[in-house]
Design a protein around this nucleic acid. Structure first.
Lengths: 225, 225
DNA sequence: TTACAACTATGCGGATCTTGATCGTGGAAG
DNA sequence: CTTCCACGATCAAGATCCGCATAGTTGTAA
């Protein structure tokens, strides 16, 4: 497991690095946002611990750029400010979780574990996320006893979301991957299928929900069990 | 559950054996095709994991000989070559499933479970699924008192479905295995025979039904008794 | 030729997809 | 805090695609 730590306070960064290595993670340290983006773009990390206040490029911007570049590595954002707007901004820019400084080491580790525990997992012919199981060969979505058959488009859209756990999938990506690259399909089309899917999730009474990020796209929210 | 592993790379074979035993299977290992045939002919195994590239007798030939000897133990074929021709050749020689190396252990286990979970049970010269009995020598389908004679194509299609219980058999697989590899038979052809079969199931008033997965294929639904 | 099985062609009906309209809502501007 | 607007959610409708059934044609073997 590789972790990228983006934190400008060197002492804190090094302390984090040491803690992570004690936990058998391999940790890389960088001390500003620009480097953070460069390193993270390699896509080799299993998680990124990202400070908000950074030189050159701030944490929000780092997260935004990574998501724009379709890097879906889970991000744990650190903020000194204990304010709701920051939290929302962080999550909205593509962070998967956040903590406010000062933080408890145990809690940090727990959150990192939660992030690195892959959610969209391929098991044989099926894809699992939260309490949902998507059967790839029969295009059936199951939760507990109940199951529903999905149409082709519904299936493709949901699979996309499940393959990119925790990260926002832009509408344009959904269109190009489900309707085809040269498609002139409207955004509304995606919205319609998201609506269908939410209805089916409701029918299955699944804990998983589909979240919306205005002007961007959708993501799967699978509550930890 | 007994599993036969036919694989010439000893380290891989032993790793597989260990994994299978952790899953409470009893695994026997052999390292070439000739031994593979000899062991498998005993008919005592619930599944065979069979490498394609083998000394003495290759995997295809092993499968072919076993099927020729009416040993119907399910075969999961392993191939290093990720090519369609191999896949088709494997299935055509009598393999039930295949995986390309390198493979994911979880997926392997899932596939083995799928193979051993089979409902279509061979009893002597007949195949059983739910309340149906398909006589392999006379091509008669029986349920209770009534029975019908099946045509060759009907028989082949139904046998395919019974051999893969609960799992969706793609139309293309049906075409390649019933009509032959290079066949240009239309999908409609399959549909026609499915239609015939359903009519006969109805006539027999069997509890077994043939389910459809749009754009993919068919599966047998055998209600638990 | 007749009988039977395999294959082909066709129209219906239902499932799925698309489109457009309307309603709700979050967030920015005032 | 309220208003407004753009965007998203949902619905209804029509269009389209696909599978099913049936009927008709071809091929083959007795």
């Amino acid at each position: 497991m590789r972790i990228l730590i983006v934190e400008d306070e060197r002492r804190l960064a090094e302390a984090l690095g040491q803690i992570m290595e004690e936990q058998r993670y391999q940790a890389d340290l960088v001390y500003d946002g620009a480097d953070g983006v460069d390193y993270a773009l390699t896509g080799q990390y299993d998680a990124i611990i990202l400070d908000v206040m950074l030189p050159k490029v701030d944490g929000f911007e780092v997260a935004r750029r990574l998501r724009a570049a379709h890097v879906s590595t889970p991000i744990l954002m650190l903020t000194a400010r204990d304010e709701v707007p920051d939290k929302i901004a962080g999550l909205d820019h593509g962070a998967d979780d956040y903590m406010t400084k000062p933080f408890d080491i145990g809690e940090l580790l727990a959150r990192v574990r939660a992030l690195t525990r892959r959610q969209g997992e391929v098991v044989g012919e099926q894809l699992v996320a939260g309490d949902l199981t998507l059967d790839l060969s029969s295009r059936c979505l199951r939760r507990g006893e109940k199951s529903v058959r999905l149409g082709f488009k519904e299936f493709d859209v949901l699979r996309l979301l499940m393959i990119h756990p925790r990260s926002v999938v832009p509408k344009e990506d959904i269109i190009s991957r489900v309707w085809g690259l040269e498609s002139d399909a409207e955004d509304n089309n995606v919205e319609v299928y998201i609506s269908f899917l939410r209805k089916k999730l409701l029918y299955l009474s699944s804990a998983v929900t589909i979240g919306t990020v205005r002007k961007v796209g959708y993501y799967l929210e699978a509550p930890a069990e």
